[in-house]
């Protein structure tokens, strides 16, 4: 398959390499130096870097500005865009803004509800949903038109992605939901973090049964656990997250000062198991405020060096 955009991530995936992406969260202020340093630390170990968009509804420096910074550093950003905070005018406007800096990847998301964040009394927008945003970006790119129908001069050339959560309910529509996102225009998928590999494998079986892995690139998501407390929190408090009891037990079974190492070890083992799952096209490593460990995870999982593409 020929690449449809200048995206490096797209080229790597279409060349048949297992891709590796990671992500950085922007700061809660206007000093972007820390984010630049986090991104610099993983430069040679990942193919692209997602920049989150006010994740968990906590107000932060905008994803677009942070993506521009990464782009100016010669990195490959993935612009995360949630439909919670902006209507169709603002969404399309920001897509053009990103395109003007040749940002070539976008991840279309709903966004966590604002009640999780620091502005729980705010209004939410949800003018479009994440699938309709996928359709919108594809229309802008492929037809060169705004949602309203008017033509766009120099349309955005973006590789279009979506998220999938194999662990949310109802389980029976998790594969149909992926099919729907692909029908809406998703070309790559980044999944929720995987701790329950068996359940993920069951989902992938359903994905393969419908040939969906041939229609979009599935990047399996992982997040290294820092502590037994984090494992318990993810298990009990994060909606749509599936952390099996044996993972919590394994983390709790080692002394506190070695739990971080255990978390890294679990993450690497998970990646190695996921490499064997047919239809997985790559990995999305979400090391939350722990980006400095990403190079080691990539190396120990046998995913280094990263391929060069023209």
């Amino acid at each position: 398959m020929n690449a449809k955009t200048p995206s490096r991530l797209e080229k790597i995936l279409r060349a048949g390499h297992l891709a590796v992406t990671s992500e950085c969260g922007p700061p809660r202020g206007s000093d972007i130096g820390h984010l630049a340093a986090k991104a610099e630390a993983i430069r040679r170990h990942v193919d692209a870097i997602n920049v989150t968009d006010n994740q968990t509804s906590v107000c932060r420096l905008c994803s677009l500005a942070a993506c521009i910074r990464l782009k100016l550093m010669g990195l490959e950003p993935v612009l995360q865009m949630v439909v919670r905070d902006r209507n169709r005018i603002a969404l399309q406007s920001d897509i053009l803004g990103a395109a003007s800096f040749d940002i070539h990847n976008i991840l279309c998301l709903s966004g966590d509800h604002q009640r999780f964040g620091d502005h729980a009394q705010g209004q939410n927008v949800f003018d479009l949903d994440s699938m309709q945003l996928l359709q919108t970006v594809r229309r802008m790119r492929d037809e060169g038109r705004f949602l309203g129908g008017d033509p766009i001069e120099r349309p955005p050339a973006m590789f279009v992605g979506a998220a999938a959560n194999p662990f949310a309910d109802p389980f029976e529509i998790r594969v149909p939901r992926l099919a729907k996102k692909i029908a809406a225009g998703a070309e790559f998928i980044q999944t929720q973090c995987i701790y329950n590999v068996e359940r993920f494998e069951r989902w992938m079986q359903g994905v393969r049964d419908r040939g969906l892995h041939e229609k979009a690139f599935i990047l399996a998501g992982v997040t290294p656990l820092k502590s037994a407390g984090m494992a318990r929190y993810m298990k009990n408090k994060v909606p749509g997250m599936d952390v099996p009891e044996e993972v919590v037990k394994r983390m709790a079974g080692v002394p506190k000062d070695r739990q971080a190492e255990e978390g890294i070890a679990i993450c690497i083992e998970t990646l190695q198991r996921l490499k064997e799952v047919p239809g997985v096209a790559g990995f999305h490593i979400m090391a939350i405020e722990w980006e400095e460990r990403v190079p080691e995870i990539v190396e120990r999982a046998g995913l280094a060096p990263r391929p060069a593409v023209a």
């Binding site: 919670r84 709903s110 966004g111 966590d112 509800h113 939410n124 949800f126 949903d129 994440s130 699938m131 309709q132 998220a163 999938a164 959560n165 949310a168 309910d169 109802p170 529509i173 939901r177 729907k180 809406a184 929720q192 909606p239 749509g240």
Partner: peptide, 14 residues
């Protein structure tokens, strides 16, 4: 989130 095309990733046990 007034989603038109299915549950978000936060739907758990109904």
């Amino acid at each position: 989130k007034r989603l038109f095309n299915g549950p978000c990733g936060g739907s758990t046990a109904g």
